[in-house]
């Protein structure tokens, strides 16, 4: 029996900055995974991932990541590696966590 499909989003690293980015429904890349387009089945996921072949001048190494979604939007990345990518390292307050903090202050 086939395993139940887990909702997915497409992620990659930004070519210029190198940080984690996520593919949105408007076919753009966001630094916030909450804005990512979710794929509800295997075909959709494959198609969306294939579409990134046309984005090679912006991103590197696109792949699919499992998410929990609510109301058609991703709410949580499931793997701990992917959770780390949304924040940054644990030893210094660098990476996305720093950026998010700045946003909060602004």
């Amino acid at each position: 029996m086939a395993r139940a499909f887990v909702t997915k989003i497409v992620t990659a690293n930004d070519l210029l900055v190198g940080d984690a980015v996520y593919l949105t429904s408007s076919n753009l890349w966001s630094r916030d995974f909450h804005e990512a387009k979710i794929c509800l089945n295997e075909d959709e996921a494959t198609r969306l991932l294939d579409s990134t072949n046309f984005h090679q001048h912006h991103i590197v190494g696109a792949y699919l990541a499992d998410v929990a979604a609510r109301d058609g939007r991703p709410v949580e990345l499931l793997h701990f590696r992917e959770k780390f990518r949304t924040k940054g390292p644990s030893n210094y307050f660098h990476g996305k966590q720093e950026f998010n903090n700045q946003q909060g202050v602004a």
Binding site: N13, V17, G18, H57, G61, F84, R85, P89, G95
Partner: peptide, 24 residues
Amino acid sequence: GSLSEEEFRTLRLMNGLYLQLHAY
């Protein structure tokens, strides 16, 4: 676009440049 990512990756690695989890 003269170099693909696969080719560039090989060349950047020879020059010490990795792409990691959060950054280069």
